[in-house]
Design a protein around this nucleic acid. Structure first.
Length: 887
RNA sequence: GGGUGAUUAGCUCAGUUGGUUCAGAGCGCUGCCUUGACAGGGCAGAGGUCAGCAGUCCGAGCCUGCUAUCACCCACCA
């Protein structure tokens, strides 16, 4: 037998087994006659590096997929990557800037060449990292949202939606990211409360000598774009001013005072400056009153020529200058502190600017209907269920989805326009004819048909320069990963997938939209269940982020604690939906657990087997007991998996392995020191250990595989990973459990006595038992060396010490201690116990005396109460006997 | 403003159909142990009025209502 190290050392073992599994093709799935079990990875960003969120998310998926494999299903976990339009483009732009290259100096093609080169170099790092974690993805199926198949799907769907009339191009107030210089969807804007200053500025009423109206604003720089002042129609303070004109400070443009019920009389001064170009509400007011729209900002957030002042200055700087100028000229009449919500770009974190622009939208209303019903009627199950409410709220108030992005990295919108002769720029006219088609040639045909101009050539057409929102490719993922828009063969087998594992933060961005797409193009739900994970936070409940530096180095953790240790750490704290307060300490626990199991292996493999040895009764009982416990654990696990209670599952296993298997079973079953094991005990131990490996494998794949192979010699292909789950576990054996628990009681009592009397564990203790649970004789307790003597009472022979009694279960025992014991104290202690049990019996009696209880409660419950009473009385009786004997 | 969830030991949290020692686990803490698989270990112990109030019930940590505090989501805020 080879010598095993004292501690489990994960590093090499993990690499070896991962390679072994890969080479054996265990991760690979192709359709066959078995029942499929499918999971699609939420594709990480191509720019992504493994972080705690990924570890959480992918450990869950791997656990589920490995369990399914053990259940004999055709398990298929499809990996993939997301091109992450805005995030990736930002990274590439930054990288180019470092090299002294400006994006604006590049053509689209040049830029994309850089981007692809970058993708080839850095993309997919995360795949290797996932492999370190043990992810059993079918890597041959790896998909990328911008590869040929997936791109084709995106373009086809855009064309299809256009054909169905569910797409439109319109000029709308949108969320503008001045840093990335693109529009964002509502879901990509994060609102947070921030401190601001509310400036009060007075405007002079035209035609008066010294009459003013004061407004309140947090954005004084937009004053330059004001085209009206609005007051509430019922606001008496301003009735006289309605219809008059005022002068915009500093630039003296004349604008009207209008009445609009949008204005809140209570807020600020009750007078609102209206800047239709820079505020969604102002824009609406502007439309109602046919106000002019003056856009004082450039797309990059600097002041535009229309502002007249501070042109070219960034909006922040312009604000400071504006305030100074207003103050100097005497227009600023006061300031106030204010806390208000500020929208920031999810990706670039800059403040989002409301901006009027021409964009593509999906009319989502019709898509939402079946998707809403599916979830509300549990056609698709949400875990935790309460997210259904959130989902319903969003779905019933769904707004159109802005899908165009002013970026280059992504799927270019398959829409063509006639080239504008006068300028290179595309028209900003929403009514301009547009030709949507899969290719430029098809678009040309379309253009000829629509315009009637047969002389048109490709040169007359220009493709839309924008790309599509990343989520526009993500929402097709459940279908596109199987090339399902072109070829139904695999799709029909694997679709719908069994479970989607993702964070609740993208329930709208992604989950809802996949459901919509699933029903629209496959006519069926995309997945059976959704397991929403919580966010991984630190001990102070802060989100993990690079800026805070509170995000542990994921790979470092794996190195430090082993993949299994990290998997344990994250799974032990990951109930569905709830946030996870991650602590490295949990990984340490996982590592310690590995070590515990490893040492159990060391113990078992160190045994010699002697076939001549008899299999004794005590060990036979222990085997019955551990199998009974195993059956209970198995039942529990099945139910945990069914309900996605994965953290409960690992906790159950942890406790079973550590307490039941190691602390109790192995202690009983192991050969007496210096002796060998009997054959039956040894084989049973191997069997139980193997079953433990199988049950633990989905959570901790590496160590279980290693132990599987160390436990006995295996033929090729006999691997834990593909071993089918045991189905011979049977059910719990109550008789055996009761007996064993009693033995444990005695053991605990003896140890307690030792502790109490400060006796050395080496000291021999004589134990006297009243009835004859013979099995206690067989109890092999390290550190609690006691010799059993069957005596009628607490008499002790010369040299055996003083008799002390204790209760274990319902039996009274006597221990002979080598030291003298204070009799009075012993009696007092027992009297206290009697008092306790008398009170206990009294309360049970009260219950049993209650007619309504006896009449209404389940007979079982009543019977149990009666039993409790009988036990209590018995204990009192025995205690009294003991006292009498001591006296 | 609309909604969701939470409140149980010093900390993080389980507690599934209301009913057995149901008041639990892990960590932390205290004491003892160089045990023959494991000090990354073992044994034992202390710690809680289950947020509060009221109700339903024979019986409430669990069900109902209200209150308090906290967290998050959606919408909106000059």
């Amino acid at each position: 037998m080879e010598e095993l190290s004292k501690r489990y050392v994960p590093g090499e073992i993990e690499d070896t087994w991962y390679k072994h599994w890969m080479n054996a093709g265990y991760f690979r799935s192709t359709p066959d006659e078995r029942e499929p079990f499918t999971i699609l990875i939420p594709p990480p960003n191509v720019t992504g590096q493994l972080h705690m969120g990924h570890i959480l998310n992918n450990t869950i998926q791997d656990t589920l997929i490995r369990r399914a494999r053990q259940e004999g299903k055709n398990a298929c976990w499809v990996p993939g990557m997301d091109h992450a339009s805005i995030a990736t483009e930002a990274k590439v732009v930054a990288l180019l800037r470092e090299q002294g290259i400006k994006k604006s100096d590049l053509t689209r093609e040049e830029f994309l060449a850089h981007a692809w080169a970058w993708k080839e170099k850095y993309g997919g790092i995360i795949f290797n990292q996932l492999q370190k974690l043990g992810a059993s993805c079918d890597w041959e199926r790896s998909a990328f949202t911008m590869d040929e198949i997936r791109s084709d799907a995106v373009i086809s769907i855009f064309v299809d939606l256009h054909k169905k009339g569910r797409l439109y191009r319109g000029k709308r107030m949108v969320n503008w990211d001045p840093s990335a210089q693109t529009v964002l969807s509502n879901e990509e804007v994060i609102y947070e409360e921030e401190k601001a200053i509310l400036f009060k500025v007075k405007y002079k009423v035209v035609g008066t000598k010294d009459q003013w109206i004061t407004i309140a604003t947090t954005r004084p720089e937009t004053i330059l774009g004001d085209t009206a002042i609005a007051v509430h129609p019922d606001d008496k303070r301003y009735t006289a001013l309605q219809g008059k004109k005022v002068q915009v400070p500093l630039i003296e443009r004349e604008i009207p005072i209008i009445a609009d019920s949008y204005v809140d009389i209570e807020f600020g001064t009750g007078a609102l400056k209206v800047t239709p170009a820079h505020d969604i509400n102002d824009y609406e007011i502007g439309k109602r009153h046919a106000l002019e729209v003056i856009d004082v900002l450039n797309p990059d957030g600097t002041m535009s020529p229309a502002a007249q002042l501070f042109v070219g200055l960034d909006r922040d700087k312009a604000r400071k200058k504006m305030v100074a100028a207003l103050e100097e000229a005497g227009y600023l009449v006061g300031t106030e502190d204010l806390i208000h919500n500020v929208g920031r770009s999810e990706r670039t974190r800059v403040i989002v600017e409301p901006r009027l622009s021409l964009q593509w939208f999906v009319d989502t209303k019709a898509l939402a209907d079946p998707a809403l019903v599916a979830v509300m009627e549990n056609e698709i199950e949400f875990y935790p269920e309460n997210l259904k409410n959130t989902y319903r709220h969003w779905m019933t108030n769904i707004r159109d989805w802005c899908i165009s992005r002013q970026l280059w990295w992504g799927h270019q919108i398959p829409a063509w326009y006639l080239k504008n002769e006068s300028s290179k720029a595309l028209s900003t006219d929403a009514d301009e004819p547009v030709f949507v088609a899969h290719t430029a040639l098809e678009a040309l045909e379309e253009a000829k048909k629509i315009t009637g101009r047969t002389d048109l050539t490709l040169a007359d057409l220009q493709q839309d320069e924008d790309v599509l929102d990343t989520w526009f490719s993500s929402w097709l993922w459940p279908i596109s990963v199987f090339n399902g828009f072109r070829d139904k063969k695999e799709l029909d087998y694997y679709y719908p997938s069994n479970v989607l594992v993702t964070g609740w933060d993208i329930i709208f961005l992604w989950v809802a939209r996949m459901i919509m797409a699933g029903y629209e193009w496959k006519g069926e739900k995309p997945f059976q269940s959704v397991y929403f994970t919580g966010m991984v936070r630190d001990q102070q409940r802060r989100k993990m982020s690079k800026q805070l530096g509170n995000s542990p180095d994921a790979l470092g953790l794996i190195e430090q604690f082993g993949a299994d240790g990290v998997r344990y750490g994250i799974m032990a704290s990951a109930p569905a939906g709830g946030d996870i307060l991650f602590d490295e300490k949990l990984c340490e626990l996982g590592r310690n657990f590995c070590n515990k199991v490893w040492n159990a292996l060391r113990l078992v493999t160190s045994w010699e087997v002697d076939t001549r040895l008899a299999h004794d009764e005590g060990r036979a009982l222990a085997i019955r007991w551990i199998k009974s416990r195993m059956a209970e654990v198995d039942t529990q696990l099945r139910s945990d998996y069914k309900q996605f209670r994965l953290s409960e599952g690992i906790t159950t296993l942890y406790s079973f392995v550590w307490n039941d298997f190691c602390s109790i079973f192995l202690e009983v079953i192991k050969p007496t020191y210096g002796e060998a094991s009997d054959q039956k005990s040894y084989e049973a131990t191997q069997e139980v250990f193997e079953d433990i490996c199988k049950l633990l494998h989905p959570y901790m794949p590496f160590i279980t595989e290693e132990i599987w192979h160390k436990l006995r010699d295996r033929t090729a292909g006999d691997d834990c990973m593909i071993a089918l789950l045991p189905n011979h576990l049977g059910s719990a054996d109550k008789d055996v459990t009761g007996l064993f628990n009693h033995v444990l009681d005695v053991k605990t009592s003896v140890l307690e006595l030792r502790n109490q009397h400060q006796l050395s564990p080496k000291e021999v203790m004589y134990l006297v038992y009243p009835s004859d649970p013979e099995l206690i004789k067989l109890w092999n307790t390290p550190g609690a060396k006691f010799v059993l003597k069957k005596l009628a009472n607490a008499e002790c022979n010369e040299g055996e010490g003083t008799g002390v009694s204790f209760l274990a279960g319902k039996y009274q025992y006597y221990a002979a201690l080598s030291i003298s014991v204070d009799k009075e104290a012993e009696i007092k202690k027992m009297e206290e116990e009697i008092t306790y049990y008398e009170g206990f019996v009294k309360s049970v009696d009260k219950k049993l005396g209650n007619e309504k209880f006896v009449a209404n409660a389940h007979p079982d419950v009543v019977e149990k109460e009666r039993q409790k009473k009988a036990d209590g009385l018995l204990k009192i009786e025995q205690l009294k006997k003991s006292i009498a004997q001591l006296n």
